[in-house]
């Protein structure tokens, strides 16, 4: 039904697997990267339709840096073709929901489009992914 490409940047292969299964079952093409550097490289090469990005990888904030890099407004940014790719950010529990930061309010602060909490609920994941991919089009 769809051949949209999703890039998952996460250093935990089991979380990647848990997301890959429902996404592939729903016809998305999944590519993965297990660190920020590899993720940026793949984003530039593949120009996916959506990036799912983990916050904590090698450092506690690696995901934030990747997001800033991808959304950089600099004229000569290596990733200027990636600026429009929606980003779904994975946060751990108690990193935390709702009131403290939300994509609507903190768009400028954190350039991502939505959040999903670990542990991953497949239904929620698919819903959020579908919304972001549709919005893009």
């Amino acid at each position: 039904m769809t051949d949209q490409k999703i890039l998952i940047i996460d250093d935990d292969p089991d979380i990647v697997e848990a997301m890959r299964m429902p996404l592939e079952a729903n016809g998305y093409k999944v590519i993965t990267a297990n660190c920020g550097k590899e993720g940026l490289q793949k984003a530039r090469e593949e120009i996916p339709d959506l990036i799912i990005l983990d916050v904590m990888m090698e450092t506690d904030t690696e995901g934030f840096h990747v997001a800033y890099e991808l959304r950089s407004e600099m004229q000569d940014s290596e990733y200027k073709n990636c600026r429009k790719i929606p980003i779904l950010m994975i946060t751990a529990i108690s990193q935390k929901k709702g009131m403290s930061f939300s994509p609507e309010k903190d768009d400028a602060f954190l350039p991502v489009d939505n959040f999903i909490e670990k542990p991953i609920q497949p239904k929620e994941l698919l819903k959020k992914v579908a919304e972001l991919v549709v919005n893009k089009e």
């Binding site: 979380i15 429902p22 529990i93 542990p119 497949p122 239904k123």
Partner: peptide, 18 residues
């Protein structure tokens, strides 16, 4: 936290038949 999240995520995917 990380391994628990991974276990929970994987179980959920299995449960839902993926």
């Amino acid at each position: 936290r990380s391994p628990l999240s991974a276990i929970q995520s994987l179980l959920k995917s299995i449960e839902e038949g993926y």
